[in-house]
């Protein structure tokens, strides 16, 4: 059963995924002239992949599927976060302030999206029970 207890294999896998993604992103930034293309690597879903792999390995497929669905709501928040970074850096012209504003937008939009997904899942479960 997949639990919330600390597991060093789990943390190690996340460290490798996260570290490798940032390192690859940096190497690509040096090699590829188009910085926009390199940005695709910066959006690598390291946290989600590690969560889904660990849930599938130590839990069951349903848990892994639920985590992936929940993460899609969070990624909607990430999309708003990146849009805010773009907008703020262009208009505020302050790197640090843009990141702070973008993180606030990420938090509230992720919360709203996760609540919507929650309502959506409850409706699906209700329909299944009726059948």
């Amino acid at each position: 059963m997949y639990t919330n207890k600390f597991d060093f294999r789990d943390l190690g896998l996340r460290l490798v995924f996260g570290g490798a993604s940032v390192s690859i992103c940096f190497i690509m930034l040096q090699i590829i002239p188009s910085k926009s293309f390199v940005g695709i690597f910066a959006a690598f879903p390291a946290v989600m992949i590690a969560s889904v792999v660990m849930a599938g390995h130590f839990g069951n497929s349903e848990q892994a599927s639920d985590i992936a669905l929940g993460a899609s709501a969070g990624m909607l928040g990430c999309t708003f976060c990146v849009l805010t970074v773009n907008f703020c850096m262009e208009h505020l012209e302050s790197w640090g302030l843009s990141l702070v504003v973008a993180l606030s937008i990420w938090f509230f939009s992720s919360y709203a999206a996760s609540q919507l997904i929650h309502v959506f899942l409850e409706k699906i479960k209700g329909k299944r029970q009726q059948k």
């Binding site: 940005g39 892994a64 990146v82 970074v85």
Partner: peptide, 28 residues
């Protein structure tokens, strides 16, 4: 450079949403 990286990340984020939805469906 941050702006340029963010433009690419925006495409990546949309791909992430698609991959998360696909994973959620395909796993079962």
């Amino acid at each position: 450079v941050s702006e340029q990286l963010s433009k690419g990340a925006l495409v990546g984020m949309v791909a992430d949403i698609c991959s998360a939805l696909a994973a959620s469906y395909m796993i079962l």
